[in-house]
């Protein structure tokens, strides 16, 4: 069994974090195994955790009465799920559901926020990584908004 420190260090989200910061993050993390259909996030609920996916896929969804869940995107190993823990009022705006058995590092957002306030260099390092993740997802979303395949090509 690898230690939590090793698991955190091995995740792409943590790439480049120094040992001190790694230890601080690992101190807020625990390893979880989630069954299919487990909800990682629920719209409106308190965003006290975020997840670094190690295996299995998670769908980011929104629920609509009469239509059930509408999948916005799926994320997988190497991705992070959830950033509402970083921004008040710390509530999820979308659902996140395991669509397969998922292995992830669950990280206590409140714990990390407290440590980041004490050590702003950790705060900046985390913010940079979340921003990176956000940017990639935003860019992919923008490209999808273009509805490229709807554009003729033949």
């Amino acid at each position: 069994m690898r230690s939590i420190d090793e698991l955190v260090a091995a995740h792409p989200f943590a790439a480049g974090l120094n040992d001190e910061h790694l230890a601080l993050v690992a101190g807020c993390a625990h390893n979880v195994s989630l069954d299919t259909d487990t909800m990682l996030c629920v719209e409106g609920a308190s965003a006290d955790m975020f997840y670094l996916l190690r295996r299995g896929h998670v769908s980011i969804e929104v629920h609509q009465a009469g239509r059930g869940p509408i999948v916005i995107e799926t994320v997988g190993p190497g991705d992070a799920v959830g950033w509402s823990w970083l921004v008040p009022p710390y509530r999820w705006t979308f659902d996140a559901r395991a669509i397969q058995p998922v292995g992830a590092l669950a990280i206590d957002g409140a714990c990390l926020r407290a440590k980041s306030l004490e050590d702003t260099t950790l705060g900046f390092a985390l913010l940079s990584r979340v921003t990176q993740e956000l940017l990639e997802r935003l860019q992919a979303t923008r490209v999808r908004l273009l509805d490229l395949y709807g554009e003729p090509r033949g």
Binding site: H57, S59, V71, I72, E73, T74, V75, G76, A140, V143, R144
Partner: peptide
Amino acid sequence: GRVGLVTT
């Protein structure tokens, strides 16, 4: 299946 841009 997966939902997202092919780059993912």
